[in-house]
Amino acid sequence: MTPAARPAPAALTPAVLLCLGLVYVVWGSTYFGIKVAIETLPPLGMLAARFVVAGALLLAVLRWRGAPWPTAREWGASALVGTLLLGGGTGLVTLAERDASSSVAAMIIAVSPLFAALFGRLWGERTGGREWLGIGVGLAGIALLNVGELRATPLAALLLILAPICWTFGSQWSRRLPLPAGLMGSAAEMLTGGAVLLALSVLLGERWGTPSAASLWALLYLTVFGSLVAYSAYMYLVAHTRPALATSYAYVNPVVAVLLGVGFGGERLGALGWVALGVILAGVLLVAWPRRTSDGPPAEGAA
Rank of each mutant, 00 (worst) to 15 (best):
V61I: 15
V252A: 06
F264W: 15
L18R: 02
L84F: 12
G278K: 10
V25M: 11
R207A: 15
A96V: 10
M190W: 06
Y234H: 15
G265I: 13
R175H: 03
S103C: 08
M46R: 00
G209C: 13
L145A: 15
A302S: 14
T40N: 10
L177Q: 09
M190L: 11
L59I: 00
W167F: 15
A181L: 05
V224T: 11
W27D: 13
T241C: 08
L162P: 04
M190P: 03
V81G: 04
F225Y: 11
G66Y: 10
S112H: 03
F225G: 05
V16C: 01
F119D: 11
A140P: 03
A195P: 00
L44T: 05
L17G: 05
V111A: 02
L159S: 03
G194E: 02
T90H: 15
T83S: 15
G120Y: 00
C19D: 13
L216Q: 01
A218N: 11
P7A: 14
L80F: 12
A250C: 06
W27A: 12
L57T: 06
G120P: 04
S174E: 07
G91Q: 01
L191G: 05
G66T: 07
T13H: 11
S232D: 12
G170Y: 06
V104W: 04
P113Q: 06
Y249S: 13
V258H: 04
